[in-house]
């Protein structure tokens, strides 16, 4: 592990052969070809299929490294320390670790994010949407030589309501008119709106919206968006289809409420990747992911998942010190 903050960032010119630029951050080097992404570090190298890598990198950028660890696969990933980010290879893989082939470097989060934004833009071809599930008609294909880009898809802004979606001045509800038709798998979801009768003077406070309709019109998958806020308690519902592109390693307890359909979660030990549990969540199920695991979800049909986060920046330190529990509730 290198403790010093890395300051080397380099974007190399496009390859004459593939048309893609290559990237350097610290001593990590990233290149892609028609099918694969290669990651090289001083003690090793790693290859991933371009589709899985791009879906994971898209979330890394959109989420600003999110909470905790985003493992693209058992070898490569990032850990967010909120301002500082670890980029690692093999650090949480027992065999890499035991044989001294692991590597970790630290970066200023915003600087690394800037490089990754450029990478996502360059490595996304025309028509390919890394936010989409591969079965969607407009998902496109990640393969092939460099062929245009898809800036509209990769620069979507993650919705973060200040109080609640639909309130005056807050995040807008989604409609056909503002460009959010219902997804093909949610065509049966009712678009009826709640009855709201506000007395004069209370129009800004007497408010409601159809959350399920809102989710049925989401044009992204595995991208929790803040829809309502109670201090640091964030309701972040999201629509899920296919596979969560990363194994998410928690640095705090994270709750799920399955609002519709079904997701299977494979849960592993955060540090070793050793299997711990398999959880099937169906409509109405509630479960908490403890702070010492990594999890990856599989949603065979597009489903609605309420991700509930406590956004307090103090929690990782509280967990380290034992002040906050690894498991949310003891009973």
């Amino acid at each position: 592990m290198t403790e010093a903050l890395q300051t080397h960032y380099k974007i190399n010119p496009a390859s004459n052969e593939t048309g893609y630029k290559s990237y350097e951050a610290g001593s990590f080097k990233f290149t892609r070809d028609e099918y694969f992404v290669s990651i090289v570090w001083p003690k090793g190298a790693h290859t991933m299929a371009a589709d899985g890598f791009m879906r994971a990198m898209m979330r890394t950028v959109a989420w600003g490294f999110f909470y905790g660890t985003l493992s693209y696969d058992p070898v490569f990933g990032t850990t967010n320390h909120y301002g500082i980010v670890d980029m690692f290879a093999g650090t949480y893989h027992p065999v890499f670790k035991e044989n001294g082939r692991d590597h970790l470097e630290k970066f200023k989060a915003e600087d690394l994010l800037e490089l990754f934004r450029d990478l996502v833009d360059d490595w996304t071809n025309e028509g390919y949407d890394p936010f989409a599930a591969p079965g969607e008609d407009d998902a496109g294909q990640p393969w092939g030589r460099k062929n245009g880009n898809n800036a509209d898809a990769v620069t979507r802004i993650r919705v973060t309501a200040n109080r609640m979606v639909g309130l005056p001045g807050d995040a807008e509800i989604r409609t056909d008119a503002n460009g959010f038709p219902q997804n093909r798998m949610f065509a049966d979801v009712s678009s009826d709106q709640p009855l709201v009768e506000a007395e004069p003077g209370f129009e800004d406070e007497v408010a409601a919206f159809n959350l399920y309709d809102y989710l049925s019109r989401s044009d992204v998958t595995w991208n929790p968006s803040v829809c309502s806020v109670v201090k640091e308690s964030l309701f972040c519902p999201t629509s899920e289809e296919f596979i969560l592109p990363v194994e998410h390693g928690n640095d705090r307890c994270e709750w799920f409420v399955q609002l519709s359909d079904e997701i299977t979660w494979e849960v592993k030990d955060k540090n070793t990747g050793k299997p711990r549990s398999r959880i099937v969540m169906r409509a109405g199920d509630v479960a908490c992911m403890p702070a010492d695991i990594r999890h990856q979800g599989y949603s065979p049909k597009r489903s609605m998942l309420l991700v509930w986060e406590n956004a307090s920046p103090r929690i990782p330190d509280m967990i380290q010190s034992g002040e906050a529990p690894v498991v949310a509730v003891q009973f």
Binding site: P194, E205, A208, F209, N210, L211
Partner: peptide
């Protein structure tokens, strides 16, 4: 509210 509706 009916199913799926959320209120402040």
């Amino acid at each position: 509210l009916r199913r799926g509706h959320q209120a402040l």
